[in-house]
Each structure stands twice: as structure tokens, then as C-alpha cells.
């Protein structure tokens, strides 16, 4: 496929505010492209700039949904947009999550902070599927910063999802203590069952989380080839040309952004 830097027009069809500076934007791009869980697209505000963002869920064919934090010049410009405004998109880029055969497997998803965005997309694709069980460990600094909480709790109430939440603030005000933990999300791994042979794990979170979490998961006996993490890097071109996203000698935009722990161990410096 030829490389193109042309933005395709996309109309902003829905905006949902989740937290102070975090919103879910849904774009109707009318292209035959679907951004799979773990893949990403570039959102372009013509004349201002573009940024890469992963899909946070699936709505309908021809739409792209992304959970975006206001962090700089371009995202600020997007936050000033209203429904009906037109932006540009390019993509999809990257490999996405390709979990092996899920039959008789237990899926464990682990998200920290805004890392819930691609994990939610993956969750939507595995819930109600072939997997024997689906568990989500989700952590943030404060309970108010946990995104998509109502829908996650609804899934848990229906029994489709085993949900564990971790926040670093004390828990006095929180009503269901069996679901909540006070401390980093990495603590929750300590409570994993001793038999981990059937586990498939997918992780997304801030870079600091990976160094601790991935090797901790490996010590519980999960095969390194069954632990998947999506790497955040500065992805500008998305096609392995511009050189910004390189980690451990590999282009995260084309060879990733999802890598197994077995692959990451061969990529020095990829996880801090």
C-alpha cells in the first residue's frame, strides 16, 4: 500500500466528557477503515497539527471513537470543536492486539490511567466471546479519574467481567470494598491464582507502570509470549519512515504498538 499523508475528512458526531480534561470523541469518517483494538489513527486539525490516538471502542462501521486528554496545542484545538465540525484522519496504523485462540483461556486486562482507552476497545471485543473469563484490573490515582466506570460496573454486575479497581487515595468513601484496592494497580497481580497457565494478559498504562508490572506478571508463571503490552511513543508518520517512535531498534508504529513480553525482552530500552 502506498504511503499517503492526506487526511481523510471526518465529522465529529459525538462528544462525551468523562473527566476534567478527558473526553470521548466519535468521528464519522465514511472510509472503509476500521481501527482494531490496539491500532491507532492520526487525528489532524488542518493547519494546526495532528496526533496519534488509539481506538477506545467500536461504535459502527465508518466511525472512529477515541478517548483524548487535553495535553497540548492540537488536542486543545480539538476540545474547542463542536459536533458537526470537520477534522482529518489517517490510518489505521499498527498491528493491534492479536490474542491467540481464546477458547478455554482466561483473559486478564490491566489498565493504568488513560491506558484504559485501548483496553476498553479490547474488552468490548472479548466480552461474551470464546474466553472462559474476562478480568480487568484498572488503576488510577483517584477514584474520580477512573474512566468509563458506569459501563464497566454494569458489565461486572451482569457477570460478564470480573472487575478490580485500584486507586492510590484512601477508600473511606467507597461503598463496595471487595472490588476496590487502595494502592497501585500492580498490587492486584499479587492476588492472581496460583495456576496461571490459561491466562492471556493485555496491558496498557503509563511507561512507569510497565517496568514493574510486566516482569511481576512473568514471575507468576505466565508465559512471556502470553503477556501483551502496547507501547506509547511519539508516532508521527505511522508508516515507519520518520524515526520518532523507535524503541529497542524497532518501529513501534509498524511493528507494534502491541508487543509480547517475549519480544520486549529482545528490545533493550523499550520498557524503562
Amino acid at each position: 500500500m502506498n504511503v499517503s499523508f492526506q487526511p481523510y475528512p471526518a465529522t465529529l458526531v459525538a462528544i462525551e466528557s468523562l473527566h476534567n480534561d478527558v473526553r470521548v470523541f466519535t468521528f464519522d469518517h465514511q472510509q472503509a477503515m476500521t481501527v482494531q483494538p490496539g491500532q491507532f489513527a492520526e487525528i489532524i486539525l488542518p493547519g494546526i497539527g495532528g496526533f496519534p490516538v488509539s481506538a477506545c471502542g467500536y461504535v459502527t462501521a465508518g466511525t472512529f471513537q477515541a478517548c483524548i486528554r487535553r495535553a497540548g496545542r492540537v488536542t486543545s484545538a480539538l476540545f474547542r470543536c463542536t459536533i458537526g465540525d470537520c477534522v482529518g484522519v489517517r490510518g489505521p496504523f499498527g498491528n493491534g492486539f492479536h490474542l491467540p485462540d481464546l477458547a478455554r483461556k482466561d483473559v486478564l486486562l490491566i489498565a493504568g490511567g488513560l491506558g484504559i482507552a485501548p483496553i476498553r476497545a479490547l474488552l468490548q471485543s472479548v466480552v461474551g466471546g470464546a474466553a472462559r473469563s474476562v478480568t480487568l484490573f484498572y488503576g488510577a490515582r483517584r477514584a474520580a479519574e477512573l474512566l468509563f466506570l458506569p459501563e464497566l460496573e454494569a458489565l461486572a454486575e451482569r457477570g460478564s467481567l470480573c472487575l478490580r479497581l485500584a486507586v492510590e487515595e484512601p477508600l473511606e468513601a467507597i461503598c463496595s470494598p471487595q472490588r476496590w484496592h487502595s494502592g497501585p494497580v500492580t498490587d492486584l497481580v499479587d492476588a492472581l491464582p496460583s495456576s496461571t497457565a490459561t491466562l492471556l494478559v493485555a496491558v496498557c498504562g503509563p511507561p512507569q507502570m510497565y517496568a514493574v508490572l510486566l516482569e511481576k506478571l512473568a514471575t507468576t508463571g505466565i508465559t512471556a509470549a502470553h503477556i501483551f503490552a502496547t507501547l506509547e511513543r511519539r508516532m508521527r508518520c505511522g508508516v515507519g519512515e520518520c524515526g520518532h517512535c523507535v524503541a529497542g531498534g524497532h518501529y513501534v508504529c509498524t511493528e507494534g504498538p502491541v508487543f509480547s513480553l517475549a519480544q520486549l525482552r529482545q528490545m533493550p530500552g523499550a520498557i524503562a
Binding site: 499523508f5 488542518p46 493547519g47 497539527g49 495532528g50 508521527r236 519512515e241 520518520c242 524515526g243 523507535v246
Partner: peptide, 26 residues
């Protein structure tokens, strides 16, 4: 053999929008 570039979006004097690739350095 270095080929890093950045993508920059710009608007010219008459309002036409374009995307440029500009050399960058690691």
C-alpha cells in the same frame, strides 16, 4: 542514512492548508 522527519501543518497567506515534512534529528 539519517531520515528522521517531522510532519508540520501550515496555513499560507491566502488560507490554503498544507502538510509539510521537515527534517528532524534524534
Amino acid at each position: 542514512t539519517c531520515h528522521c522527519f517531522d510532519l508540520r501543518d501550515s496555513v499560507d497567506d491566502v488560507g490554503d492548508v498544507s502538510r509539510l515534512r521537515v527534517w528532524d534529528s534524534c
